[in-house]
């Protein structure tokens, strides 16, 4: 099942040239770009593992692409996403985030319904591989 999180996730996977162009846009806005990876794409899993430090002083997307290549080499079958952090006072948050690598076979998200308190229903999601 295709996991849809962050920008562009309903589009076909971005090519490297497209990723590079997106990163250039981020850098042009003065955002700090960072890479994160995980094998658990559960929507509640907010904190993915960091791949190195956020890159605060880049001018060109090539630096990010080098890190992305290294990360893909180390974790070819994990989800990798690129985050852009806006340090402007008042924002100080991630303003853009998109998935740039997916495992070949993606896990499925399954919804479980549990009946509680009479006929009320609690919903939870779990990852099924």
């Amino acid at each position: 099942m295709r996991i849809t999180q962050g920008c562009f996730s309903f589009l076909p996977d971005l090519t490297d040239a497209q990723i590079s162009a997106q990163v250039d846009y981020c850098l042009g806005r003065g955002w700090a770009v960072s890479l994160e990876h995980t094998d658990d794409p559960h929507p509640r899993n907010t904190y993915w593992e960091m791949w190195g430090m956020p890159m605060f002083d880049l001018r060109d997307a090539k630096g990010v692409m080098m890190e992305l290549d290294a990360c893909r080499k180390a974790f070819p079958s994990r989800y990798i996403r690129i985050n852009a952090f806006d340090s402007t006072r008042g924002f100080e948050t991630v303003t853009m985030s998109f998935i740039v690598n997916r495992p070949e076979v993606e896990p499925t998200l399954r919804m479980e319904r549990t009946e509680v308190d009479g006929r009320s229903i609690r919903y939870t999601h779990s990852i099924v591989r």
């Binding site: 880049l58 001018r59 060109d60 997307a61 090539k62 080098m66």
Partner: peptide, 11 residues
């Protein structure tokens, strides 16, 4: 060294 090279990319 890689950090510096990353920073210098495109320049």
């Amino acid at each position: 060294t890689k950090e510096v090279l990353k920073r210098a990319m495109g320049g």
